[in-house]
Amino acid sequence: MTVADEKTLEILFTEARSQNGWTDQVVTDAELQEAYDIAKWGPTSMNIQPFRVVFLRSLEAKERLKPALKPGNVEEYVCMHTHPDGMWTDPCGVLSR
């Protein structure tokens, strides 16, 4: 069995945080694919992978997804807009609350 070094343990258990903010940086399809490829190998329950991901690039795609959202997520979802260059904005300030 390999034992992780102290820095690795710190990154995993004391420094890691959930993402809850956004930037105006464009995320490429290659970056999305890389993030998905890493995430799909995460631990599972009973050797199943309930992980489902949808990457949306257009307002039309977002509108098709809206009916599937939980009521508590609709305001954030509706307020997040995308520009043709792929940059997201938060005109309602939902994410800064």
Rank of each mutant, 00 (worst) to 15 (best):
D24V: 07
Q25C: 07
V26S: 05
V26G: 03
V26C: 04
T28C: 04
T28N: 07
T28M: 04
D29G: 03
D29T: 11
E31Y: 01
L32S: 07
L32F: 14
L32W: 12
Q33F: 07
A35C: 13
A35I: 13
Y36P: 00
Y36I: 11
D37T: 13
D37P: 01
A39C: 14
K40L: 10
K40Q: 08
K40W: 05
W41C: 11
G42S: 12
P43N: 05
P43T: 06
T44S: 09
S45Q: 13
S45P: 12
M46E: 09
M46Y: 09
P50Y: 11
P50L: 08
F51D: 05
R52W: 09
V53C: 11
V53E: 10
F55Q: 05
F55R: 11
L56R: 07
S58E: 02
S58W: 06
E60N: 09
A61H: 01
K62G: 02
K62Q: 03
E63H: 12
E63I: 03
R64E: 04
K66E: 06
K66F: 03
K66L: 10
P67N: 10
P67H: 04
L69F: 02
K70H: 08
K70M: 04
K70V: 03
K70E: 00
G72S: 05
V74I: 00
E75Q: 07
E75S: 03
E75A: 06
E75L: 01
E76Q: 04
Y77C: 13
V78I: 03
V78F: 01
V78N: 12
C79G: 12
C79I: 09
M80D: 00
M80I: 12
T82L: 08
T82I: 05
T82N: 02
H83M: 12
W88C: 11
G93Y: 15
L95E: 03
S96I: 14
